[in-house]
Simulated assay, not measured.
Amino acid sequence: MSTTYYFAIVGTNDSPLYEAEFGAHQDESKYLNQFILHAALDLVDDAQFMTNACYLKTVDRYNDWNVSAYVTPSNTRLMLLHENKMEETIRSFFVDAHELYLKTMLNPFYEPNTPIQSQTFDSKINGLAKKYLL
């Protein structure tokens, strides 16, 4: 059985900057995945003030799905919708994804809080998913 993961980077104004689905692709569930992550944004905002860590672990559950979050110092939220609990590997995925996001932000041609449309960024995120999640 293959597991599906849905990853999103949400900007400071709650707009999606990047999204990707890994594993068994189920296009009909894409909008449900977006809805679940968007519904968890308030819980992420509440949880970030309870700790000084960037990785917030699982902040919400919906049926068999868990929502894990990582908040950058600039308040950009990295969120992952997943079925199984692999806290340490998810944390490692978030740390490396945050590093890729920082490298994108350092690009002088990238406008902050706009969608990331780089093919290189997308392929590197997919590589991280294969390394840690799949």
Rank of each mutant, 00 (worst) to 15 (best):
M1T: 14
M1G: 15
S2I: 04
Y6K: 02
F7I: 02
A8I: 00
A8S: 14
G11D: 04
G11C: 05
T12R: 15
S15W: 10
L17P: 00
E19I: 03
E19W: 02
E21L: 02
E21F: 00
G23L: 05
G23C: 06
A24K: 14
H25S: 11
H25P: 06
Q26Y: 06
Q26A: 14
Q26N: 15
E28P: 02
N33E: 09
N33S: 15
N33M: 08
F35W: 09
I36W: 04
L37E: 11
L41K: 09
L41Y: 08
D42G: 14
D42I: 03
V44L: 06
D45N: 14
D46E: 15
A47Y: 04
A47F: 03
F49T: 15
T51Y: 02
A53T: 12
C54M: 12
Y55Q: 10
Y55R: 10
K57Q: 15
T58H: 03
R61F: 01
N63C: 11
N63A: 15
N63V: 10
D64R: 12
D64K: 13
N66V: 00
N66E: 13
V67D: 03
V67H: 02
V67F: 03
A69D: 10
Y70E: 09
V71Q: 07
V71L: 11
V71R: 09
T72P: 05
P73W: 00
P73I: 05
S74P: 06
S74W: 00
S74M: 05
S74N: 12
N75E: 13
N75M: 10
N75H: 12
T76I: 14
R77I: 10
L80Q: 04
L81M: 05
H82D: 04
H82A: 02
E83V: 07
N84P: 00
K85G: 07
E87A: 12
E87M: 12
E88N: 13
R91D: 13
R91W: 05
S92N: 14
S92H: 09
F93G: 00
F94C: 06
F94T: 06
D96A: 10
A97L: 08
E99L: 11
E99G: 01
L100A: 08
L100P: 06
Y101W: 12
Y101I: 06
Y101N: 07
M105Y: 02
M105N: 13
P108I: 11
P108L: 13
P108N: 02
P108V: 12
F109Q: 04
F109C: 03
P112I: 08
P115E: 08
I116V: 14
Q117S: 06
S118G: 02
S118F: 06
Q119H: 07
T120M: 13
T120F: 10
D122P: 00
S123R: 07
K124D: 11
K124F: 13
I125W: 04
N126D: 14
N126C: 13
G127V: 00
G127S: 13
A129M: 08
L134V: 08
